[in-house]
Structures are given as C-alpha cells and as structure tokens.
Design a protein around this nucleic acid. Structure first.
Length: 289
DNA sequence: CCACAGGACGGCT
DNA sequence: AGCCGTCCTGTG
C-alpha cells in the first residue's frame, strides 16, 4: 500500500488507504478487544499500546500514536505492507463465491496479533460465542493485566503467561470461561516454560507449527489454525468453524463432509492464500447465511 | 422450564 | 483412522 503517513502532537494520520475498512477488520471475528465508539471509530490495546482510530474514506487518524508508534506497532498489526487488491484479484479468478465474499467486505485485512494473546483468546473461543469471548477476555485482562488509562477510560494489557500460570483456577473462573479455565492455566504454564514466538513457528514449517500448537491443552485443529493465521505466522492456514463448513459445503463441495476434507479442498483450491480466503468467506457466511 | 449455539477431549470402535 | 457423549455459559 502506498499510503502517506504524517505524525504530529501524538496523532498520526494515514492517507491513501486501500482495501482498509476498520469496521470489517475489527468485527470480522479475528480479534476480541476493540471497543466501538461510533462508525469506523474504535479504541483498543495491543501489547501496552492504546490507540483510538477514526477512519473517514481512505484516510485514518490514529490518536495517542506517534509516527514511531505507527511504524513500530500499528503498521505491522494492520498488515499495512500487504497489497490486498492483488490478493482479491488472484483469489477471484474463476470463482464467483470469492467474488461475492470479497465484494461484501473488500476492506478486511488479516491482523498480526501477539502470539500468546491469540493462542489463549482462541482457546476461549472454542464452543463459545463472540460476545462471551469478549467479556471473558476483558475480565481476565482486568484481573491479571496492567491498567493503562487513555482518554478517561481504563484499558488493560493482556495477561502475561507467567501470571496466568500462577493464577488459581477458581479465580480464573470469575471470568466465566468455565471448563476452559483449566486449559488456560495449563497452556499458560507450558508457554511460560517453553516460550514460542511467531518466528519459531515460521521456521518450523506449517505442519510442524500446527502440531506444536496442538500440544497445548485446549488447542485442536481449528484453534491451532486460528492462532497461526491471526498471529501472522501462516496466512495459508484455513480454520474451519461451523460457518466456513457451511459455506464450503453449500457452494464448493456440494455435499456434507468432514472438517478434514474441507481443509484439504481449501488447500488445493486457495493454496498459499487460503487464510485470506477463509476470512472473506467466514465474514460473508456469518453475516448472510 | 427447555432448546440451542459454539470446538476440544477422551473413550470407544 | 473416524464417531460421539460431555464439558460451560448465555440467549431466545
């Protein structure tokens, strides 16, 4: 993307955005911590950086964000250097389903979220609804994260693995995560004892990276793929949930089938762009089917 | 009160 | 390898 960036007075303005729609990006189901203030006006925290972003057309104003914050944190988080127009064009060849899904939300981007937060968030997402997931993550962060005040509101960093590893399961249950609290504590303990990074995962190849994540308690195939995709480790990962299963069976495979066969189909059809395809299809299916 | 939504685990074949 | 009952919480 050839966007221009100007920072002044702790505010950074980005102009010339392409395939960037804040609402699509933040509400397409890949992240859980952003708060909506109004149309294309959101506040959120990543690591220990809090920001408020207001988008109008092809420009966005990042409040509480220096030009350095933008280049060090937000540019990477929002995957600003990837050309989504090219991706949509390639996926759309001879594919009216993708044409419809990308036409519905051409401004989706795949975020690059912190690894441990992504892993725990998607453990919580299993067998759960998005409003619930958001409440649970907010409560855990308020209980175990560091408070950061911004524009008269309180934000909390996502808890460190070492902190969640020491937490009492009964205290974790105040978040209403239920049986997933055992998974959170066990995964945090394993992660603390042998920390993983996105570059570790990238260096071992997709299959080994997925197997590695599936060793954590509470992480199956779908959660592992979500973690790989939404941390930016592998944009070829194709998480299959009930919505993706439904749209793939109805429009591509034309019969009911197993999750495994859907993943194989997606890999052969979308290849290295499967993760992008998944997110367009998921958001379209969830909003329209 | 009940039905239902949402994936991983563990025991079974 | 594949199938299925169970797990927790909130909503209709």
């Amino acid at each position: 993307m050839t966007a221009s960036i100007i920072g002044i007075n702790n505010t950074t303005t980005v102009r010339g955005l392409a395939n960037f729609d804040l609402e699509s990006i933040l509400e397409c189901g890949q992240c859980f911590r952003w708060e909506r203030n109004g149309h294309n006006d959101y506040s959120g925290i990543v690591g220990d950086k809090v920001v408020r972003i207001v988008q109008k057309g092809d420009s966005a104003v990042f409040h509480g964000c220096t030009e350095l914050d933008f280049s060090e944190t937000w540019s990477e988080y929002f995957d600003m250097k990837t050309n989504y127009g090219d991706i949509i064009e390639k996926l759309s060849i001879n594919d009216t389903v993708i044409q419809t899904a990308t036409g519905f939300a051409p401004g989706i981007r795949i975020l690059r979220q912190p690894l441990f937060e992504t892993l725990v968030s998607f453990i919580i997402s299993a067998n759960n609804s998005i409003p619930n997931i958001r409440r649970i993550i907010f409560t855990l962060s308020a209980m175990y994260g560091k408070r950061i005040d911004f524009e008269d509101r309180r934000f909390y960093t996502f808890p460190e693995a070492a902190v969640l590893a020491e937490a009492e399961v009964n205290d974790l249950k105040l978040s209403k995560a239920g049986y997933r609290c055992e998974y959170i504590k066990k995964t945090a303990t394993s992660f603390k004892n042998s920390p993983l990074t996105v570059s570790n995962l990238k260096s071992m190849g997709y299959l080994n990276a997925k197997k590695t994540l599936e060793q954590f308690m509470g992480v199956g195939s779908k959660v592992a793929d979500c973690t790989l995709l939404f941390s930016g480790a592998y944009v070829s990962a194709f998480p299959v949930d009930v919505w993706v299963k439904k749209i793939m069976e109805e429009f591509y495979i034309k019969e009911e089938t197993s999750l495994k066969r859907i993943r194989q189909f997606a890999d052969s059809r979308f290849g290295s762009l499967a993760g992008y395809a998944q997110q367009y299809l998921f958001y379209y299916a969830r909003s329209n089917m």
